[in-house]
Amino acid sequence: MDQFTRAGEPIVELSGVEVRAGNRVLVTGIDLSVSDGEIVTLIGPNGAGKTTLIRAALGLVRPSAGTSRRRTGARIGYMPQRLTIDRNMPLTVRRFLGLAGTFEPGKRKQVLEETGIAGIIDNPVHDISGGEWQRTLLARALLSEPDLLVLDEPAQAVDLTGQAELYRLIGEIRDRRRCGVLMVSHDLHLVMSSTDQVVCINTHLCCAGTPDTVSRDPSYVALFGESVAETMALYHHNHGHTHGVDGSIVHEHGHERRHG
């Protein structure tokens, strides 16, 4: 394999993936790929199979149909959803990072600096805030110098300002490391500015594309309801018109009834 073909090859590629639990179909017919330096966001309602798909991408679950391939030699950093540590297990942030393997001295401090929380390295994991904990998990995912970051709802249990900061940090990490990012998120409006591709699923693939196209896709609107889709439209794009709170069309040049 020469350098050139390797560079063009996606880090992870799912095609026609179906995963079943017994007879129940968790996801079906999903195509998805992440290349170097690309941020792909997976959205969908609860129970849509987002975490299942993430597990298939990581190779933790075998698809019942279709293929899930990872580029040979690709290192993957994983940040799982809702990781809580039993209060009965005493663990400092330093030790928690150490569970990922053996790394050269200073490495743990370095990844914590990268996520902006080097100061809490010796704190017990139970005594840090939700935002600090998510950054600790992100730091652990960075330890292996990953080619791909797989982040399952990285901003959960983080307050609204913290969420925006966290997504900005993820964007910065991608810019600095040129790694691919596959993440799950509930709130498209928060990740919109920092994501390249959005894949919207509800067991099956609903729609995929740039954040802009997806937020206007009828199947996306149907899935999340008019109001969510509108919030997003208001938040992000100003193309010609936008919708007022009552659903009426408000023209850009017209008068800003929605603020009234």
């Binding site: 994983y78 990781l83 569970l99 652990r140 292996s144």
Partner: peptide, 18 residues
């Protein structure tokens, strides 16, 4: 020891880390 601790904290994360 380390593998046991890691598997205790989160099975999938441990699996993803080999």
């Amino acid at each position: 020891w380390r593998l046991l601790l890691s598997a205790t904290v989160h099975a999938d994360l441990a699996r993803a880390e080999g």
